[in-house]
Design a protein around this nucleic acid. Structure first.
Lengths: 334, 334
DNA sequence: GTGAAAGCGCTAACAA
DNA sequence: TTGTTAGCGCTTTCAC
C-alpha cells in the first residue's frame, strides 16, 4: 500500500495513529503519499489486529419510548466524542433476547462493551453474564459487584412526587405502574416511595388504589385510569410511574369530562418532552438524562480500557421535581 | 483451534456457516468439538476475510423525533431478521456530518450500506457520494439514479390534508413548516400540495399565512402559531407539516384560551403515537412506516448483494388520512 | 527513528 | 467430501 510512495509500513501505521516517534520529514512524506493515493485505513483489519471493534452496544427494551430515545441521543453524542460508535438494539423486554446480549456469544467481539437497560431479566439472570464483557446497567437494579449501575434514587424521587400530591391537600392517592414480580424492581421502588411518603405523614397508602401495569406506556395508563374511575370512590390524585402512563391517564380523564387537576391531579415520571407541551402540561420527576448517559459511557469506556476490572460502582444521577399544570393548574394567560 | 479436537479447519468453517457439502458424520464430530471447547467464531476475523461487516447504518437528523424513533424500531427489526446489525447515528442536520457518512471515508468499511434521511444536504451534495456505497434515501428527495429512494407521495398527502380542512368549511387556512431553500424540498412539496388543494377548488392559498420554520418540532410549532394569532385576521384552520408542529401549535392555542377545533382546526403529519393520546387528539397524515422501513432495508440489502448496481428506484409507500379530534371535534362520551 | 516479519482468526481458491 | 494454504490489511515485537 502507501509505503510504495515513500517509506515503509510500520511508519505509516505510526503516522496514521499519531504515535510519538516520527520525524517531521518522514511524517510529511507519508502524509503526501496518503493524500495522493486517497488512502483510507481498513477498519476491519485494524479491528482484527487490535482485537477490539471500537463499538459499544446500547440495549434497551423499547426505542419508541421517548425516555429511551432521549437518552440514546446523549449516549451517541458521548460515545462519538470518545471515538466510539453505538450499535443499538431493542429487546422488547424479551428475556432470551436480553440474555443473548450479555452472554458469551458469537456477537461478543462486535462491541467492546454494553450499556444495558434490562426489563425481562431478573437479578439472578443478570448476574449470569459473560464475566469478560464490560457492562453498565441502567435503571433500578442493584449491582452484584460485576458491573456498574447508573440510575437515580427512585425511592426518594417517588416519595417526593407523592409528597407533592399530599401537599396539594389530596388524600385519595392512586399509583399506576406497580409490577409485583421479580423483574419489576424498578416499579417496586416507586411503590415503596409512594408508601413511605404516606407513612412519613402518619397516613396510610390505600393499597386498593395501587394499580399494576405490564408496561409503562400510554395505553396502560389509559386503561388503568379507566379502572380507577370505575371504582365507587375514585382517587383525587394519581402518581404515574412514567410520563407516558400519565399522558394516557390524562387522556382518559379528559375524555370522561373530568378536569385535571381540579378533579384529579396527575404527576408523571421521566420528564419527556411531550409532557411539556401536552394539555395540560404534566408535572413530573426529571432525571438528569445527560448525566446518566455520559456517566454510563464514561464508566463503560473505563471498564473497557482497564486491564483489571475496576470496582463496581452504584452511581446516582440527580433528579428534580418539575411542577406543571397537571398538578398546579393552568396559569392565567393575559 | 477446534480442528484439534477432530478434523480440519476448512471443514469447521463449512459447518459453522452451514455450507452444503459436509457428511453428517463429520458435521457431528465438528459440532461436538465446538460444544466442548465453547468455540465462538471471531466476527472481526470473519469480517476482514469477507470484506464485509454485516452492519448497516441508519443515519437520521434527530433521534428524539418520534417519527424517526418509530421508524428506527421497524428498521432494526427488519435488518435483524436478515442477519444485519444496525449502527445508528444522528446528524443534527449538520451538512458536514451528513457528508462524512456518505463520502468515501475511513469508516466506510464499518457498514455495508446506509439508509439515510438527509436534512442539511441539498440534492447536489447528495449526488456526490461514494459511488460504491449502497445507499437508500428516505424522505422527500428524488433519486439521481445512483441510489434508491423511499417515501410517500407528499404532494398528494398534503393536498388531502388541506382538502379535509376545506371540507370543514374553513377558508382562512394557514400552513406551518415551509422551508423555502435548497435543503427544504420536503417542506416545499407539502406547500405545493397545500396550494394545489386550494387551486382545485378555485380558491387561492393565502401566501401570508404560510409560515416557515427551521425545524419540525413542538417549539417551532408553538412559536409559529403565536405569530399567526397576532395577525389582524388569524386563520381558522392550520395544516402543520409534522405532528410535533401540530402539538406545539395546539399548545399555543389552548394556552391562549382558544378551542380546537371550534375556533381553529389543526391537522398534522406523520401519525406519531403522541397525537393519538393528546388533548385534543390530532388529525394527521399517516405514512405506512412499517412498509417504509422494510422496503428500505430490503432494497439496501439487494444493493449490497448485487454484483452490478440494480436500477435506482423511486418507491412510494402508501399513506392515509386519519381524522381525530383536532379537526372533527370531540366525540361525546356517555 | 525506521524496517522486516510475524501474527490477529477467519474464508475461499485450489488440490487431493 | 475434506485438507492445504494463501491471503484479508492492519498492528506490533524485535532488530537495526
Amino acid at each position: 500500500m502507501a509505503e510504495l510512495a515513500g517509506v515503509s509500513s510500520r511508519t505509516v501505521s505510526n503516522v496514521v495513529n499519531g504515535y510519538a516517534n516520527v520525524t517531521e520529514r518522514t511524517k510529511a512524506r507519508v502524509q503526501r503519499a496518503v493524500d495522493e493515493l486517497g488512502y483510507r485505513p481498513n477498519v476491519l483489519a485494524r479491528n482484527l489486529a487490535q482485537g477490539r471493534s471500537g463499538q459499544i452496544a446500547l440495549v434497551v427494551p423499547y426505542l419508541d419510548t421517548p425516555y429511551f430515545s432521549e437518552l440514546l441521543q446523549s449516549v451517541i453524542r458521548a460515545a462519538r466524542a470518545r471515538g466510539y460508535n453505538v450499535l443499538i438494539d431493542q429487546t422488547d423486554g424479551d428475556p432470551e433476547h436480553e440474555r443473548a446480549f450479555i452472554a458469551h456469544g458469537s456477537r461478543r467481539l462486535l462491541f467492546d462493551g454494553v450499556i444495558f437497560s434490562p426489563l425481562g431479566l431478573d437479578q439472578q439472570a443478570l448476574a449470569d453474564h459473560d464475566p469478560n464483557l464490560p457492562l453498565v446497567i441502567l435503571g433500578e437494579r442493584s449491582s452484584d459487584g460485576t458491573f456498574d449501575h447508573v440510575g437515580i434514587d427512585d425511592v426518594a424521587a417517588s416519595r417526593q412526587a407523592t409528597e407533592h400530591l399530599l401537599d396539594l391537600g389530596r388524600r385519595r392517592l392512586a399509583a399506576i405502574g406497580d409490577q409485583p414480580y421479580a423483574t419489576g424492581e424498578a416499579a417496586q421502588l416507586r411503590t415503596r416511595g409512594f408508601r413511605e411518603a404516606h407513612a412519613a405523614r402518619g397516613l396510610t397508602a390505600r393499597e386498593d388504589l395501587i394499580i399494576s401495569t405490564p408496561r409503562f406506556n400510554r395505553k396502560d395508563g389509559a386503561q388503568a385510569m379507566a379502572a380507577l374511575l370505575d371504582l365507587p370512590e375514585p382517587p383525587d390524585a394519581v402518581f404515574c410511574y412514567s410520563d407516558l402512563v400519565a399522558l394516557g391517564a390524562i387522556h382518559t380523564l379528559v375524555s370522561r369530562g373530568l378536569r385535571v387537576p381540579e378533579d384529579v391531579a396527575v404527576i408523571g415520571y421521566d420528564d419527556i418532552e411531550d409532557g411539556a407541551y401536552s394539555n395540560p402540561t404534566v408535572s413530573t420527576i426529571s432525571p438528569d438524562k445527560e448525566m446518566i448517559a455520559t456517566t454510563a459511557v464514561e464508566r463503560l469506556l473505563l471498564r473497557i480500557s482497564s486491564p483489571t476490572p475496576p470496582p463496581a460502582l452504584e452511581l446516582r444521577a440527580p433528579h428534580k421535581l418539575v411542577i406543571r399544570e397537571s398538578t398546579a393548574g393552568r396559569v392565567a394567560v393575559p
